[in-house]
């Protein structure tokens, strides 16, 4: 069983970002099925978490609802991350979610990046904004992302259709997930503790200085 977590940064209802996220998820599940891998997916909409994300940024900890979203991301074997393109980048809310996500949550996590926008002109947002951010977060970013402009949801005239592009990206991502296998979650708390234990072991032992430690 491969656990997929899907992040949708769409703001409206209905949302083309969510629509794209759902289509990619279905395609990835279908591709995984070819490897005899069953997948389960959980989708996180960022809009209802908007306040909690800003609060977490201001006070340093997440409320229960946001914490549960973090857990869903941390426990996934792979992430599908979809944002609307705003002002030549991801949306601020999408970025803010990853700004408050605990460090190393995405470490070694296969990620499929995708974005929606008004026109095809913004398609490089995948390569200029999403890919570097996820690389920085130590994710394994799938080579093929999906960009969908408003036109892609209408008539297709000659260009490679959205469905084909989704299939191509889903196929690449499924192969990546298959190769990576079940993901082991990093435990920074335990890592920090082990490092401190090592440092202290090199320090003077308690009691070695001849005093009693009461």
């Amino acid at each position: 069983m491969t656990k997929l977590t899907v992040i949708s940064g769409g703001l409206r209802q209905p949302s083309s970002t969510r629509l794209l996220a759902d289509r990619i998820t279905e395609a990835v599940e279908a591709e995984l099925a070819k490897f005899n891998i069953t997948a389960s997916s959980s989708t996180i909409e960022l809009r209802p978490l908007g306040r909690a994300i800003i609060d977490a940024m201001l006070i340093g900890f997440a409320n229960a609802e946001l914490e549960s979203a973090f857990e869903t991301v941390a426990n996934a074997d792979g992430l599908i991350a979809v944002t609307p393109a705003f002002n030549v980048s991801y949306s601020g809310l999408f970025k803010s979610f990853f700004d408050v996500l605990p460090q190393e949550t995405l470490s070694d996590m296969p990620v499929l990046i995708a974005a929606t926008g008004g026109t095809e002109r913004h398609s490089l947002v995948l390569e200029h904004a999403l890919r570097p951010m996820f690389s920085y977060l130590h994710a394994i970013v799938a080579p093929t992302g999906v960009y969908a402009a408003t036109n892609d949801f209408g008539a297709q005239d000659g260009s490679v259709g959205l469905t084909e592009r989704i299939s191509k990206a889903a196929n690449d991502f499924a192969r990546l997930l298959h190769a990576c296998g079940t993901r082991t979650r990093r435990d920074v708390f335990t890592e920090d503790l082990a490092e401190m234990e090592r440092l202290l072991a090199a320090a003077p032992r308690p009691g070695e200085d001849g005093t009693v430690e009461d």
Partner: peptide, 27 residues
């Protein structure tokens, strides 16, 4: 917020003060 502080306090048998405020009690 960090476990290193609990570790050094425990190592030397010193006191451990959890700031506690501004954070959830689970922490």
């Amino acid at each position: 917020r960090t476990p290193e502080v609990a570790e050094i306090a425990a190592y030397y048998g010193d006191g451990f003060f959890a700031n506690h405020i501004f954070w959830p009690p689970s922490h």
